[in-house]
Amino acid sequence: MAEILVVYATKTGSTREIAEAIAARIRSAAHEVTVLDAADVGSVEPYKAVVLGSALYAARWRPEAVKFLKRNAPALARKPVWLFHSGPLGSDLSAQKAPSKVRELASRIGADQPTTFGGRLTPETAVGFFAKKMAQGSMAGDYRDWDAIELWANNIAEQLVAAR
């Protein structure tokens, strides 16, 4: 069994790709890592630490990510947990406040508030009428900052090594 669980909730795959990049960086620090969709996680008990990321749409986390936090809150409160969300588009990628329920759950489990990463919206990946219309306009593009994602994941890896 892997020691670190990286969990994601995504609509178009962008957040999954961020989760996979985070997992790869943590693996490079000699940790065993499992990457799973939030809907596919049975229990977090076997893991020493958890990273959870959700797509952020209209200031909301994906429902499966919120359900994951609620369902696993008691166990997560006993582990190191890092949270992120992705979704802001455009040139102003300032930190986005998590939904109130996520902020409450993060506080309950002792995790910092989620780190914000830019999202991706392209005509090829857009799902739904509104997203498809946005993907045809000036908001379309890939706003993920892979250097920032790697730096954040590197910080997690360093904290995990220090905790050994």
Rank of each mutant, 00 (worst) to 15 (best):
D37A: 15
R62N: 13
A49S: 12
R71S: 07
V44A: 06
P88R: 07
S43Y: 05
K48D: 13
R25I: 06
A24L: 11
P63V: 09
G53C: 02
V51M: 06
P63Y: 07
Y47M: 09
S54L: 07
A38C: 01
L52M: 09
K70E: 13
A73N: 07
S86G: 15
G53L: 02
A23K: 12
A49H: 04
E45N: 09
R62D: 13
A59Q: 14
A24P: 05
V44G: 03
N72G: 05
A75D: 12
V33C: 10
A77M: 04
G87N: 11
S43M: 07
W61C: 06
P74M: 06
W61P: 03
A58F: 14
E64Q: 13
D37T: 09
E64H: 05
K79F: 01
E32M: 03
R62F: 01
W61H: 12
D40E: 13
K67W: 10
P63E: 14
F68G: 09
A23I: 03
V81T: 09
L83T: 03
A73C: 06
K67L: 12
W82Y: 12
P46W: 09
K67Y: 08
V51W: 00
V35Y: 07
R27V: 06
S86K: 06
R71Q: 12
P63C: 04
V51H: 03
S86I: 06
E45P: 00
A49V: 04
L69V: 02
R71I: 00
S54M: 05
I22G: 05
A38T: 01
A65Q: 10
W82Q: 11
V66R: 10
K67V: 14
L83M: 04
V81Q: 06
H85S: 10
V81R: 04
G87R: 11
R71N: 06
R62K: 13
A38K: 03
Y47W: 08
S86Y: 03
K70M: 01
K79D: 05
V44N: 03
R62G: 10
A58W: 13
R60M: 12
L69A: 08
S54W: 03
E45I: 08
A39S: 14
A75T: 08
R62W: 01
R25K: 14
A39R: 13
P80D: 10
A29Q: 07
V51F: 01
W82N: 11
W82G: 10
A55G: 14
